[in-house]
């Protein structure tokens, strides 16, 4: 049976509740946010309806440029590390026994669903002086006394890789699971070393998947808003942190909204690009 086009008004009735909810509670808030980004800010945290580009003009400051380039650079580092480790990992995972796969998927989903608050807390404990990994090194005699390994850039990067890695694997997993196993077999039969076969057959076959995954992880990492605060110093703050800070602590909604609109544009163009690139893989 093919799905029929709706004919009577009653045929549309299942759509009513979802359409109203999504419009009222997603489209309208989004619209308000875009409007607020053009409003004029008043002293004391209020704003009045207006059409000014004041908030957008602040983008031209060197401070904002610094935050933006830091956010993009950090997200790129996170995505690069995650894809480099995640690609061979997911390849092996998709070829492991079923119970091994299921156990890993449960573990990865559990970590992925963890609150950023908890991840930040766990890593700042792990990297701390009193309860951290350096105590282990002291105990092993490799260090003289425990040191604090946070806050710094390395800690932010580690925490964000930890958060994004399960996501990377889950994005790569479907393509890897559907990858034709005969490709690798053919290469091996013809006498290729496993590593060479992997690099010359699997990697090129999934080139577009890799690019699309890189972009998706990049976008995911752009959304990290607590780890830079918990594991880094103010100079490690990203655009997401800055938006939260402006909205909640500085009470500058127009500026926060303008940055959010900008972030949406960046994200949507990247996701569009990822979808475009991801479609092209023929080997899966």
């Amino acid at each position: 049976m093919r799905p029929e086009p709706p004919r009577r008004i009653a045929d549309y009735s299942p759509l009513a509740f979802p359409a109203v909810m999504l419009t009222v509670f997603f489209v309208v808030p989004f619209g308000i946010m875009v409007m607020v980004s053009f409003f004029r800010r008043q002293q004391g945290g209020f704003y009045t309806p207006d059409f000014v580009l004041e908030s957008y003009a602040r983008f031209l400051s060197t401070f904002f440029g610094g935050v933006l380039s830091f956010s993009l650079g950090l997200a790129a580092c996170v995505a690069l590390i995650c894809v480099i480790v995640g690609f061979p990992f997911t390849y092996e995972l998709a070829r492991a026994k079923r119970w091994v796969q299921v156990s890993w998927l449960v573990a990865l989903l559990s970590v992925l669903s963890l609150s950023e608050v908890i991840i930040g807390f766990a890593w700042s404990t792990l990297l701390s002086r009193t309860a951290g990994i350096s105590n282990l090194l002291v105990w092993l005699g490799m260090m003289d006394k425990p040191v604090a390994l946070t806050p710094n850039f390395g800690a932010v990067l580690t925490g964000m890789v930890y958060q994004a890695f399960p996501y990377t694997v889950l994005v790569l997993y479907p393509a890897m699971a559907r990858l034709d196993p005969t490709l690798m077999e053919a290469a091996r039969t013809l006498g290729s070393h496993p590593l060479k076969a992997f690099l010359t057959v699997v990697v090129p076959a999934l080139r577009n998947t890799i690019v699309a995954t890189f972009i998706m992880v990049f976008v995911f990492a752009l959304g990290s808003y607590l780890l830079p605060q918990l594991l880094g110093r103010p100079q490690h703050w990203t655009l997401s942190v800055l938006i939260t800070d402006q909205a909640v602590y500085q009470s500058n909604m127009p500026f926060a909204a303008a940055m959010a609109v900008f972030l949406v544009l960046v994200t949507l163009s990247l996701v569009g690009l990822a979808l475009l690139v991801g479609r092209k893989d023929a080997a899966t």
Binding site: I32, M33, G223, A257, L263
Partner: peptide, 24 residues
């Protein structure tokens, strides 16, 4: 379109949805 709207909040950075709701 509604399916896309349902997927959008999950794809966009969470701070966007958060800020949208704060304004709303």
């Amino acid at each position: 379109v509604f399916q896309m709207l349902g997927t959008a909040p999950f794809v966009l950075p969470p701070v966007i949805t958060a800020l949208g709701f704060l304004a709303f």
